[in-house]
Simulated scan of single mutants.
Amino acid sequence: LLWAGGADGVSHAGEFFTLDAVCSFPKPVGGDLPIHVGGSSAPAARRAGRRGDGFFPGGLLTPDERRRQFELARAAAMEAGRDSDALQYTRWGSIGMSEVDVERFAREGVTRLVVSPATADPVAQRAEMAAFAERFALVRPVGPVE
């Protein structure tokens, strides 16, 4: 509601909270912002399937546990009458990951990777992220990295 609402705000009265004429700016680019439900438990996986746009398993799970939880999330989506094939699968990745790493994630069904720069320097962060995006053809560089 907040992302769709205008300057007059939106209201909501629910079990856990109430909002009265609340506004949220800026709005997500393109209108919707996908919600990825995270967690390392079976209930988190079921919540992702019932309510989320994606699942982001956390914790120190084995690859088999992650696979089973994503299957559980997809099953919960189907039970809720949602398109289980539309459920995205998010995982942490490394800024220095290779094409082989990305292909392995893709074989596991991963549709979104979250990576972070390895440096605290903002200029170097931008260069690292730009290099990652260029390496995997995610965007075309707009101009020189400063």
Rank of each mutant, 00 (worst) to 15 (best):
L1M: 13
L1E: 06
V10P: 01
A13W: 04
G14D: 02
G14E: 07
E15I: 05
A21K: 15
V22E: 03
S24Q: 15
K27G: 05
H36P: 00
H36E: 03
A45M: 03
A45H: 09
R47Y: 14
A48N: 03
R50F: 10
R50G: 07
R51P: 02
D53F: 04
G54F: 11
P57M: 05
P57W: 14
L61W: 13
E65Y: 11
R67A: 14
R68N: 08
R68Y: 07
Q69T: 07
F70K: 02
L72G: 08
L72K: 02
A77M: 14
M78F: 12
R82Y: 15
D83F: 13
S84N: 07
D85C: 08
Q88C: 10
Y89A: 09
G93S: 06
S94Y: 13
S94N: 12
S98R: 01
S98F: 09
V100I: 11
V102K: 01
A106H: 09
V110W: 14
V110G: 01
V114N: 06
V114K: 01
S116E: 10
P117M: 05
A118P: 01
A118C: 03
D121P: 06
A124V: 08
A133P: 00
R135S: 08
P141A: 08
V142T: 09
G143I: 00
V145W: 00
V145N: 00
